[in-house]
Write a protein that binds this DNA or RNA. Sequence first.
DNA 1: GATGAATGAGCTTTCATTCAT
DNA 2: AATGAATGAAAGCTCATTCAT
Lengths: 195, 195, 195, 195
Amino acid sequence: MDKKSKKTESILDAALLLFSNNGFYSTTIPDIAKAMGMSVGNIYNYFTSKEVLAKEIIKYSSNILGAEIRKVNEEECSVKDKIRKIVALYFEMASTKPQHINYFLRVYLANREVFKDGCEGMLCVSAFVTELMIFFEEGVACGELRNQDFFSAFGLFMGYLGGFVFLNGENVLDKNINHYVDDIALNIYNALKQQ
Amino acid sequence: MDKKSKKTESILDAALLLFSNNGFYSTTIPDIAKAMGMSVGNIYNYFTSKEVLAKEIIKYSSNILGAEIRKVNEEECSVKDKIRKIVALYFEMASTKPQHINYFLRVYLANREVFKDGCEGMLCVSAFVTELMIFFEEGVACGELRNQDFFSAFGLFMGYLGGFVFLNGENVLDKNINHYVDDIALNIYNALKQQ
Amino acid sequence: MDKKSKKTESILDAALLLFSNNGFYSTTIPDIAKAMGMSVGNIYNYFTSKEVLAKEIIKYSSNILGAEIRKVNEEECSVKDKIRKIVALYFEMASTKPQHINYFLRVYLANREVFKDGCEGMLCVSAFVTELMIFFEEGVACGELRNQDFFSAFGLFMGYLGGFVFLNGENVLDKNINHYVDDIALNIYNALKQQ
Amino acid sequence: MDKKSKKTESILDAALLLFSNNGFYSTTIPDIAKAMGMSVGNIYNYFTSKEVLAKEIIKYSSNILGAEIRKVNEEECSVKDKIRKIVALYFEMASTKPQHINYFLRVYLANREVFKDGCEGMLCVSAFVTELMIFFEEGVACGELRNQDFFSAFGLFMGYLGGFVFLNGENVLDKNINHYVDDIALNIYNALKQQ
DNA sequence: GATGAATGAGCTTTCATTCAT
DNA sequence: AATGAATGAAAGCTCATTCAT
């Protein structure tokens, strides 16, 4: 990776962290610059506006999350196990690198006006959606999952996991989020399996 | 209802609409005032700050949604039917009065800093959560639903429906959202039912 | 005193207290109304504006302070004793009804723009100035005080006392302000006496 | 002095002039910006708030006045002469750079709420108070002044001079303020001298 | 006389973006 | 590439004053 790409990525990382913690509008460009030890003006040499930066971040996070799911997709195991692995990695991510999931929940999902131009129709999260689509279609193909509308299944999977991470952030769960993996994987499997 | 309460509620309605359409930070008090044909200063005679207004709105919407679910809870029918009715009313709401659900998704869920003081731990949405808790516990009591952690079930129900409404708003669904009611109700039932 | 005058005076009292404690600009008409248990609008039936109210108050306080000094002027005693009595009553006032002196220091002396029209040249504090003028001229007439420009003497007297009350308010004095009466009366006497 | 310090000081000068002429609350940040030919926002790159600016100004003026008095303190002359010189320089200042003294009278002395945090107990005017303390203690040490409480003497000195500058500003004096120097210096000397 | 909802101009402060260096 | 001072529009909020009741 060349020097320019390296700096571009470190801006993405710093901004991701701040946006996901404090929200898009409560994070300022000077905040990001200070967090990086970089000047305000120089950030604009890498991203032409705050909105563009926000759009690049969602693609960046979507790629990272998608790559994790691809690893599961490439494993040789039952669909039931795959579901468990995806839930586990999602919650693992929520514990160790929560910025990716929080960015999705707090920035992407919420500030639609920011992602209006250029991210229509899940375009900016397609890396991630695609992997789930592969997972689902393979599960249907091998007969383990019921054949249904993809978005009915996707909404279940992602809404459930996202909602649960939100509940965890609200501190309403009795136990650590990782304790819920089995329960939740089972619920998802029961919902999607061939009855 | 006296005159003052009436105006208070009409501010809630106007602000709810704007916040849910444009987001909390992209909606200004002048925007709300203009939408109401009211002066900026007068809004502050009813709500002491923009944040306070946002908190009152989430309680207001939570009450309205909760009241709808209570009606289903009070009906005499199978749990399976109740799930279907709740999904249907949720999507009906998303079609006819989307501001309530969008406010939940776009404002409450996303702008945590705004709801920090006074809404901790789902406090401001308790009217709504309580009804779902009643639904779930009755379902368990009559043996139709598997006994599991409430939040595992709640996260499924609400994450799923919320996520699906989001997908609908993104225009990625092939059909009108009401066409998915049966699929989704079935998935939820399969996930939660006594196996 | 008729009902109207009574209410007028109670507005003066309430506003005097608030203005002297919090300053002219930091006190609002609603503050005054609330302190009185009266409506905002009704205050305007008694005083046509906040500025007019402020001007009436300085006359009101000047009358009260002037009346106190007149009592001393009317006593039969040496000029030296009169000085002591005036200092003592001034500090007594500063302890028991500080609003009058603080209004003079914090509102009248400071916010010149408010008193521009109608209070030029000490006009609004003439009741008070006049009494000190009488005191001074009698002292000169009886030979106890040196004949000098009145304002040289007035500035000493009032600047000194006012400044001292300010120091007291700043909590920089070691002892209670009343302990300084003798020292200060002596200093003033030494400054003004026939050498 | 570097460029940034230079601009900081020129903001202090501009704001001092406006505050002392028009009062703290009647002077707006846009007023100051316009007087400087600078943008509103940029002022906040130098001072974090209007209150902070006001506090910096009182320290700035206190330093300037203190430095003038130090010069007198360092001269070799009688205490009587020093009093005259201090009175003369004070009135000279009141004529040529009245903003410093007026700021003290109209802004610092009056708007206590503004100077509440960080300027307690004359802290922000200590440069000035210290010099007068030195003057007084040297006068006592050499036997020319009566040993008395410092604040009794300080209140006389500063209250008198401040009060007189106020009277001058009110246009009630018959003659130019500089004509009163001898009278006033004599009064102060008589008050403080060893009898 | 008495009320207090309503007005709207104006305040302090913020911040994305620019640009001379 | 890098800096950070500078801009200025726009935000949230306040409050003297009015006026229908």
